[in-house]
Amino acid sequence: MSLSRALETGDLAELPSRRDEDWRWSDLRGLIRAIPPASPDASARGEGPFAAVCSETMLVINGGSARIHLAAGEKKTIALRLISRAEGTSHSADVAVTVAEGAELTLLESHESFGAGYITDVEMDITLGASAVLERVVVATEAADAIAVTLARVGIGAGSKFAQTTLAIGAKRQRIETRLAHPGAGAAVRLDGVYLVGEKRHTDLTSTVTHKGEGGTTDQLTKGAVAGQGRGVFQGRITVERGADKTDAKMGHHALILDDRGEVDSKPELLIFADDVACAHGNTVGQLDEQAIFYARQRGMTLAEARALLTEAFIGEVIDRIEHDGARDVARTWASEKLRGLT
């Protein structure tokens, strides 16, 4: 049951509904009454957010396929632009990324919109060989009335390093999901997210990490701010299977509700089947510290400036964890621009 199955078969019954536990806050069946026609072929527009920091670009416009392969020992930075240039139509994309043993890839992914009312579905398969490194930075800027679902299935090798930062502003319904199979074996995973959601938008950052073997780490931090009937959803599940001892997993989700119409729903889950582990999660929902706002205003800032500055600092903690210097700057500028719209 998935959006891609529904788009493929035209069968609305394939859409996940709120009765499905993992979709309880991001119902699609109640939202999509008919499967729209397929999107037409189109050409790219603009350069994408990462043009200045990356020379190699791959384009996927209104669906289609892309293959990225790095041979053993290779090192690359690639921008992947997933463009929706559609009005009321639907499209699916599938992307395969393989990073062979010892190779290093920085994947700068942008989900760009030049249209309205479309449905887009992206499925990605990411495979990392032993000791491979992948940093994936996703900036998802969909149209306010679009429905956008992205699912990445990630498999990683022993001693590899997978780091991901997802930045989203939501859509009519947006879900960015990551399913990661963790072999333990010295592999390290960082899964971060930022959502800045306003104007009746909805975003859902969902992740499942399954530790299958001994000695792996997962470090997860998601932060978000919502306002103006925006709704942020965070679902994180870390499973530690029997035998996956010496797992060190931590998950944090922290959100700010900036006005009374915002909503944050979260479910940070830990499912632990091994005893020699250190697993923890923290989850907070609240508002900006009044004392900090007072301090900033006393220093001459307006209330709006103070709120923007503090929210930016709050979100900044996640952005600072992006390792690619150029991508980090792009992400910071992007977040600060989107925040201005919110605060």
Partner: peptide, 12 residues
């Protein structure tokens, strides 16, 4: 956790 209010303060 389902928070629908800007003055809500939830810690877990």
């Amino acid at each position: 956790i389902e928070a629908r209010n800007a003055t809500a303060h939830f810690e877990h």
